[in-house]
Design a protein around this nucleic acid. Structure first.
Lengths: 199, 199
DNA sequence: GTCTATATTCCGATAGAC
DNA sequence: GTCTATCGGAATATAGAC
């Protein structure tokens, strides 16, 4: 496997924290998952909180750059919406626990948490906002606040992963059907959004 | 206050469980919130898990009937979308912790959990689905799978409450601004959706 | 029914041998 | 660096007085 103990811990912690959240995760779970002893966790990371912080930083740091790269690229607004949905949904299919993990911890952790961890790292919407306003002024799309548009895009991409258990309970769809639906949504979502805003 | 001890416990437990989730909530928190002793919680509800189950049943049971009433009413599809968004967002503004609570626990609790608690209680989409298919056949809206449409509606209504901390961190909006935005979304969301599907 | 006190279990963290 | 053993505190749950 050629993986250092520290790497094994980080991988195990990421898995356990994302499945159970900070409050629900146990150090023993992480040790078991990593195939090592509980004491080693503290040897490497001192405390559960520090280990969690490490994981949150790592996980949230992976997604942002890829999304920013799309959001700040020089393609047209419609192409950008398209590319964003493709990328976002693809990443979530790879890691279905991510949306709940982010949403849960940003809601549960104390006030300064987001500042500490994200700080200046955030989605940079300026260019996208500018593009939206240009298209509105040009009359190619209906008037819409850029932040509202962005919120709608994220909502449509992210929520299905959060509501998956309820959706499956309601409709009887299994995991394969769910994944097929999300695969289809990679293009259905941008089509839907563009239909809604184009004049 | 004219409230029985059992009612005080249920109210306190609902508040604490919704804020902190099953894993994060402490029986002591609930006792403090209710202004009673920890032992009394067990006297009335035997265990934390049973108390939690009671709350989940109560909370999830409140929302469904109101939404079903709209979904199964005899109004037009567009009016129905409108009414659903109004009602859903209004209920969430009253109780902003509800979306995260439902999403979190339906994802974290074990397999049979949803069956046990919701059982046959669920959103009844049949009539809505029928309406969608009629409108598609009639050529008034673009072809869309009813479940996809419903998922989109819920996504746009519910996700903002889940992503609120991130949204505020990104945009600097305070609570008043957020509430104002959600108030506006009561009509912006249905307008957006109808724009997307109408021919 | 409600309380105080206590039992019991669990879990994060540390000590110390190797 | 890695382990076993254990501490100490926290959290659920119970016993028993009133």
């Amino acid at each position: 496997m050629q993986q250092s103990t520290e790497e094994k811990i980080l991988a195990a912690a990421a898995k356990v924290f994302m499945e159970k959240g900070m409050a629900g995760a146990r150090m023993q779970d992480i040790a078991d998952e990593a195939g090592i002893n509980k004491a080693l966790l503290h040897y490497y990371f001192r405390s559960k909180e520090k280990l969690f912080d490490e994981i949150f930083k790592e996980v949230s740091g992976q997604l942002l750059p890829r999304l920013n790269q799309i959001i700040e690229s020089d393609i047209s607004l419609f192409d950008k919406i398209w590319a964003f949905c493709q990328e976002y949904i693809s990443r979530m299919v790879e890691n279905p626990y991510l949306p709940l993990f982010i949403v849960e911890e940003t809601n549960k952790q104390q006030g300064a948490f987001l500042e500490r961890h994200l700080g200046n790292k955030r989605l940079r919407l300026d260019k996208l906002a500018q593009q939206v306003q240009q298209e509105v002024a040009r009359g190619t799309i209906k008037p819409i606040h850029p932040l509202e548009l962005f919120l709608t895009i994220i909502s449509m991409c992210a929520f299905p992963f959060l509501g998956k258990p309820l959706l499956q309970h309601m409709s009887g769809m299994n995991d394969d059907m769910f994944n097929a639906m999300m695969e289809a949504r990679k293009s259905e979502v941008p089509k839907f959004i563009i239909n809604a805003i184009k004049k």
